[in-house]
C-alpha cells in the first residue's frame, strides 16, 4: 500500500435524487377485490340470519357442556362399532386405490410414458381428484345399494387421483442408473419397470398409501351421513336428534381413534422412508399444497 488513496475509492456511486413513490396498483387491487367480494357475498346471501350469531357462542358452550359432561359412556360400543366400520371402509378404499393407482402412476410418469400418454393420464387423475368422496358415494349408493361397500368404492375411486399423481411424481424422481442397467440386459419394457423402477419407488409409494389411509379415515367417518356406512350415520342421528351425550361419546371415539391410528401409521411411514414428502407430510388434514 504505497499510495495514500484508499483502495476502492474509485468505486462510483450514482448521485441520489429521491425517487418518486411508485403506485402499487396490484396490492390495492387485491385488497380492494377481497373486501368488495367479502361484503358483496355477505350482503347478497339470503337468509343468512346473522342475528343467530349473537346467541351462537352461548349455545355452542351449552352444547359442548351437554356433550362432554359427561358423555354417555354406555354408548361406547355403538360408537366404536361404527368407527371400526369406518376404519374398514378407509382400509378397503385405500387398497382399491393402491391397486388401481400403481399402473396409473407409471402411465402418468413423464420419464416412463410418452408425452401424450402421460399428459392425458395426468388430466384423468386430476379429474378424478376433483370429485369429493361424498358425491361419489351418492353415485354409488343407487348402484351397489346403501352401506359400507358404496363408501369403500367412493373412497377408492377418489383416492386413485391423488395416489396416481403422487406415484407418478415419485417415479419421475428416480435414479436412472438401475433403469439403464436393466435395459442393458435386454429386458422388456415391463421387465425394466419391474426390476429397474419399482424397487426404487416402492417404499415411497407405500408411504403414500399409508398417508392416504390416514386421510381416508377422516372421509370414512362422515360418509355415513348419506348412508355409505361407518360412524357417520351415528354422528348424524345423535346430533340431529340432539342426543348430545351420545353425540359427545361418538365424537370422542372418532377423535381418539383417528389420532391413535394416525400416530401408528405415521410412525410406520417414518420408518419406511425418511426425508421425502410422504414422510414429512405428517398431518393428513393439511394435504400437500402443490
Amino acid at each position: 500500500m504505497t499510495t495514500t488513496k484508499a483502495p476502492g475509492a474509485d468505486v462510483r456511486r450514482q448521485p441520489g435524487a429521491r425517487p418518486r413513490k411508485p403506485r402499487r396498483y396490484g396490492a390495492w387491487l387485491l385488497n380492494g377485490a377481497i373486501i368488495v367480494a367479502f361484503f358483496w357475498a355477505i350482503g347478497s346471501l339470503e337468509d343468512l340470519g346473522l342475528a343467530d350469531l349473537i346467541g351462537a357462542p352461548a349455545k355452542m358452550w351449552d352444547i359442548f357442556g351437554l356433550m362432554f359432561s359427561p358423555p354417555d359412556w354406555s354408548y361406547f360400543p355403538t360408537a366404536m362399532e361404527g368407527m371400526v366400520e369406518s376404519l374398514q371402509i378407509a382400509w378397503i378404499g385405500t387398497m382399491i386405490a393402491a391397486a388401481a393407482s400403481l399402473p396409473m402412476g407409471f402411465l402418468a410418469a413423464k420419464n416412463v410414458t410418452a408425452r401424450v400418454g402421460s399428459t392425458v393420464t395426468r388430466q384423468v387423475l386430476n379429474a378424478i381428484r376433483s370429485v369429493p368422496e361424498l358425491i361419489l358415494a351418492i353415485v354409488f349408493i343407487p348402484i351397489v345399494g346403501l352401506g359400507a361397500v358404496a363408501g369403500a368404492l367412493a373412497i377408492g375411486v377418489h383416492s386413485i387421483g391423488t395416489l396416481g399423481k403422487l406415484s407418478a411424481e415419485a417415479i419421475e424422481g428416480i435414479d436412472t442408473g438401475p433403469v439403464e442397467a436393466a435395459r442393458a440386459t435386454g429386458a422388456s419394457q415391463a421387465g425394466v419397470m419391474r426390476w429397474g423402477v419399482l424397487p426404487q419407488v416402492l417404499p415411497e409409494i407405500v408411504a403414500f398409501w399409508l398417508y392416504r389411509f390416514e386421510v381416508n379415515i377422516r372421509a370414512a367417518a362422515i360418509l355415513g351421513i348419506v348412508g355409505a356406512g361407518g360412524v357417520g350415520s351415528v354422528l348424524q342421528n345423535t346430533i340431529s336428534f340432539r342426543r348430545w351425550d351420545k353425540a359427545g361419546m361418538t365424537i370422542l371415539v372418532v377423535i381418539v381413534v383417528t389420532v391413535l391410528v394416525d400416530a401408528t401409521s405415521s410412525a410406520i411411514r417414518r420408518r419406511l422412508i425418511r426425508g421425502s414428502t410422504a414422510a414429512t407430510a405428517s398431518d393428513p388434514t393439511t394435504e400437500v399444497v402443490a
Binding site: 349455545k59 352444547i63 367417518a221 340431529s240 372418532v254 377423535i255 389420532v259 388434514t285
Partner: peptide, 16 residues
C-alpha cells in the same frame, strides 16, 4: 384439525 368439516356442519346446523 382432527374434526372433519361435515361434523362441524352437523353441530352448527343444530346450533344456529
Amino acid at each position: 384439525r382432527s374434526i372433519p368439516d361435515v361434523l362441524y356442519a352437523l353441530v352448527f346446523v343444530a346450533a344456529v
